[in-house]
Design a protein around this nucleic acid. Structure first.
Length: 613
DNA sequence: ATCCTCGGATCGTAAAAGAT
DNA sequence: TCTTTTACGATCCGAGGATT
């Protein structure tokens, strides 16, 4: 019979036996601090400590997992193995107890499985010895190695922790063996890339790319257990990590010293190729189309990132579209479906949705395609434990691309009746919207700030080009929309951003950053061509900016950008004859390796100019 | 004196195992 | 199918260290 309770406070005698009630649910901070929570919002302890009170963390599923008999059986096997090593030792009850204690712990009163990571007969360890993870893991599954018994359904109901676990291992049949290696049939014919070889690239991702793609849960994917030699990852997780590694390698390219991997027999010598090949192969082993999860979305996204950086645009577009299709299947574009989810799970999904939104907008414009995703759901919030600057930047970027509406994409693509739609007031409004977002850039990490700033200038240039190509140009207009010298202003700001930037932060944006810089430089070159006779300061400076941008592109990601040569060809007639030598002899940008002579730095572009001539 | 951290006692709950 | 056993996550007491 139930005692009278409130929704928040259920009765339970406290540990010390007094009459104080324990809460059903403590807030995230009290849980972490292990202090009594009053369940208010904000709660007393949080108010007192002046910290933000939230109840985002999803409760984990209680109760035993897997079959006890399996564990007993395993303990017996282990004893049997020891007995084989010492043949004359009998299988005494004491030995049996010892064996069981290996699994259940030595204290009968607290039967905690020992953190035994040693593989025995390929068995999976029971638990991770690391500090238990204390934030929610619904999105990408749990950090523990157990494969829980999953209900086969994955409806649109609120996502319980277990349901999200089934996202991590969606292809695991609902077999209740939590603690043991999967059956042999699951082992691939060709051995996998060892887990330890994957980890360095995942670390690189979190070091350099997480700021611009904050959709991967560090707590799960940097958990050392994940990469221990005994952990057999579910195929979907393994394929995802392979895609992430491949994308990380090509995105950073030569910008940093990516760890060399000695080739594995029968595989491509390039680490990125090896990872992408492995990813695509392993993906075939599972029914990821019939049973997609957020991991499936991310896998497609990172395959897209790989091919995007490789400039295989058709394949890149295919995988971007694939990830968007999974987003639609999972109804991640529907705010109502988000409301049904656990709060934390919803936050991760929002991030993923908006990352795809930003990516699709940018890529659609570059490739002149239509957009499928729209700003239909709320933006994500920062998690309790993380640096709020991270999400500020991400959200600002989302705002920036929201300023580019479907009409813009459609006109840019050339499918809309241009003149009828492309009006000066509308373009001016678009330009203005681009400037109204991202006002608090100081509150943002540098990597994201660069992305926002350059993307904004890039979009400004595109909007300007759109106006010009639709007859909205005027010589010295009041608005930016049609001014002929507007690209010079944009270039000035872009150069300013690029010169101040930490080169690594600039490089971490991969080929996308090179494309944007090259688009801006290309437009600038066009304008300078048109106004070749103009010797006013504005146009003289324009040439200076062009020179600086070419210099920047000559050493993107540790080498010459593939966009440099076409640009140099375009700029040849502008720069070599008309720019005063004093202007060409510019100092190396901040952060450039001081060991390289300034002369050489300037010389790179000059050599390119000669080549183009 | 006060605040904070965290080991661990104790509880509720869910799943497995056993009884009928 | 019902009951019991077991495992495990959650709460939060309180010892002890850190800070004011």
């Amino acid at each position: 019979m139930c005692m009278a309770t409130t929704a928040e406070n259920d009765s339970a005698e406290s540990a010390s036996g007094n009459t104080q009630k324990s809460l059903k649910r403590a807030c995230d901070c009290c849980r972490k601090r292990k202090v009594r929570c009053d369940g208010e919002s904000p709660c007393g302890p949080c108010r007192k400590a002046t910290i933000r009170c939230a109840y985002l963390q999803a409760p984990k599923k209680k109760g035993p997992k897997g079959l006890r008999s399996e564990r007993v059986l395993h303990a017996l096997r282990k004893i049997d193995q020891s007995a084989t090593l010492t043949p004359d030792s009998p299988l005494s009850p004491g030995l049996l107890q010892d064996g069981l204690s290996q699994w259940y712990g030595s204290s009968s009163s607290s039967p905690i499985p020992l953190p035994n990571h040693t593989a025995i007969d390929g068995a999976m360890p029971t638990s991770t010895p690391a500090e238990p993870l204390t934030t929610g893991y619904g999105y990408y599954g749990p950090p523990e190695p157990q494969s829980y018994a999953m209900p086969p359904h994955m409806g649109s109901q609120a996502l319980s922790v277990d349901q999200s676990m089934s996202q991590l291992w969606p292809t695991q049949p609902p077999q209740p063996q939590s603690y043991y290696a999967p059956p042999l049939r699951q082992q691939p014919a060709i051995p996998r890339i060892p887990n330890q070889r994957i980890l360095p690239y995942v670390q690189l991702f979190f070091e350099h790319l997480y700021f611009i793609m904050p959709v991967v849960d560090e707590q799960i994917y940097l958990d050392p257990y994940m990469y221990s030699s005994t952990n057999y990852m579910p195929p979907e997780t393994y394929a995802f990590l392979c895609a992430l590694c491949a994308a990380t390698i090509v995105q950073l390219d030569a910008a940093i010293a990516v760890p060399e991997m000695e080739p594995l027999p029968g595989r491509p010598s390039s680490a990125a190729e090896m990872f992408i090949e492995e990813c695509l192969k392993v993906r075939q082993e599972v029914d990821y189309i019939g049973n997609p999860s957020t991991v499936t979305v991310m896998t497609s996204f990172f395959i897209f990132a790989y091919y995007g950086n490789k400039e295989s645009s058709d394949k890149a577009w295919h995988y971007l579209q694939e990830s968007i299709s999974f987003v639609e299947t999972l109804e991640m574009d529907d705010e109502n479906s988000m409301l049904k989810l656990d709060a934390l799970e919803a936050q991760w999904r929002r991030r993923l949705y908006w990352l795809l939104f930003i990516t699709e907008r940018a890529y659609s414009i570059q490739r002149r395609k239509n957009c499928r995703l729209h700003p239909t759901i709320e933006l994500p919030l920062a998690f309790e434990s993380e640096d709020p600057r991270l999400l500020n930047g991400f959200v600002n970027l989302a705002h920036l691309f929201s300023a580019i509406d479907d009409k813009f994409v459609s006109i840019w693509k050339g499918s809309a009746r241009r003149k009828a739609l492309c009006s000066e007031p509308w373009l001016a409004e678009t330009q203005r919207s681009l400037d109204t977002v991202a006002l608090s850039l100081a509150e943002i990490t540098e990597t994201t700030r660069i992305d926002i700033s350059v993307s904004r200038e890039w979009l400004h240039i595109l909007a300007w080009q759109m106006g010009v190509s639709n007859g909205l140009v005027c010589d010295k207009g009041q608005t930016s929309t049609g001014r002929l010298d507007y690209p010079i202003e944009v270039a000035r700001r872009t150069v300013d951003i690029a010169e101040r930037a930490n080169p690594l932060a600039l490089d971490s944006h991969g080929i996308g950053m090179e494309q944007k810089l090259s688009d801006i430089a290309g437009c600038l070159a066009d304008v300078l061509h048109v106004s070749s006779g103009d010797t006013s300061d504005t146009f003289l400076h324009g040439r200076q900016y062009l020179h600086l941008m070419l210099n920047k592109l000559s050493m993107m990601r540790g080498k010459e950008s593939r966009y440099l040569r076409p640009l140099v060809a375009k700029a040849a007639g502008i720069l070599d004859s008309q720019v005063p030598r004093g202007m060409l002899a510019l100092p190396a940008p901040a952060g450039f390796d001081g060991k390289v002579e300034e002369k050489e730095w300037n010389g790179r572009v000059d050599r390119q100019l000669k080549w183009a001539a």
